[in-house]
Design a protein around this nucleic acid. Structure first.
Length: 272
DNA sequence: ATGGTGGCACCGCCA
């Protein structure tokens, strides 16, 4: 069965429900993973989501900040809502997809919103940068432990807030001291990826020589003209699913819609 | 070197 999976940092779901509906009508993902929904579970627009054809929904929200959700047309079972660093922030949600598992080990989907890390890339002066690096360390140790048990069928995606490759930013040289592309962040990010030997699905389809962005700042006068983007959103799979990935698209057009999110959706299709 | 924009809660914080 060919499954279309999307991830999108929506930067307030309630404010942009119309954009989500427009995206869904155009691209019809089977599963849509959202980050920065910025609402409490009690305020989640469940009726509107259900009306769009997503009957199976998992939410880990909090008031005002952060928050992640998974909208699905296929049955899901809640796996976990991990507060990895004990901060109380809603940054993770995982589900099992029993219909795609059959006799194989269960397929698990992890949706992450990694801390952005503040402005100054200095752990002494900026506690948010310290939190971001620590968050990757916690992800690394968690997935290292999981990898020792058994090699599960995992998909890990979301806003990981790091642009790892030189071509994941508009200017490698000018970004080296900018949070999201500093060497220490790229190192921590790479350690997490190595912990489960995750495959960078986006780069399976777009060569590392080519620029690839999923985020453009609100602060640019003309985001398209300046094109100072970054690839902050990612889709990873465990090695067992490497061959299952059949396509990948970055849906840049949503950045031109009225009142857009600063992130755009990424879609991948998997034969599962 | 600086400030540029946006969302949410509330007069600042986070991105």
């Amino acid at each position: 069965m060919l499954i279309k999976l999307a991830t999108w940092n929506i930067n307030s779901l309630r404010l942009r429900m119309d954009l989500v509906a427009r995206f869904i009508k155009l691209h019809q993902p089977d599963i849509l993973c959202l980050q920065e929904i910025k609402c409490h579970n009690d305020d989640f627009p469940m009726d509107a989501v259900n009306a769009l054809g997503y009957e199976h929904v998992a939410v880990n929200g909090q008031k005002g900040y952060h928050g992640v959700a998974i909208l699905s047309r296929l049955p899901l079972e809640l796996d976990d809502k991990k507060d990895l660093d004990g901060s109380g922030e809603a940054r993770h949600l995982s589900v099992r997809l029993p219909q795609l598992s059959g006799s194989q080990p269960p397929l698990i989907l992890h949706n992450f919103y990694v801390p952005a890390g503040g402005d100054k890339p200095d752990i002494e002066q900026n506690p948010k940068f310290r939190q971001k690096l620590a968050y990757f360390d916690l992800m690394t140790s968690w997935f290292s432990k999981l990898a020792k048990h058994d090699q599960q069928r995992l998909i890990l995606l979301g806003d990981l807030n790091v642009a790892p490759l030189e071509t994941d930013v508009w200017s490698h040289k000018q970004m080296l001291k900018v949070v999201s592309h500093t060497p220490i962040e790229v190192e921590k990010f790479s350690q997490t990826r190595a912990a489960y030997q995750f495959i960078d699905v986006m780069r399976e389809f777009v060569p590392a020589q080519e620029k690839l962005f999923t985020w453009w700042s609100y602060r640019a006068r003309d985001w398209q003209a300046s094109n100072r983007g970054r690839r902050l959103d990612h889709i990873w799979t465990s090695p067992a699913l490497k061959e299952a990935a059949k396509s990948m698209q970055v849906i840049t057009e949503t950045r031109s819609w009225p009142r857009p999110s600063d992130h755009v959706p990424v879609i991948a299709e998997f034969d599962l």
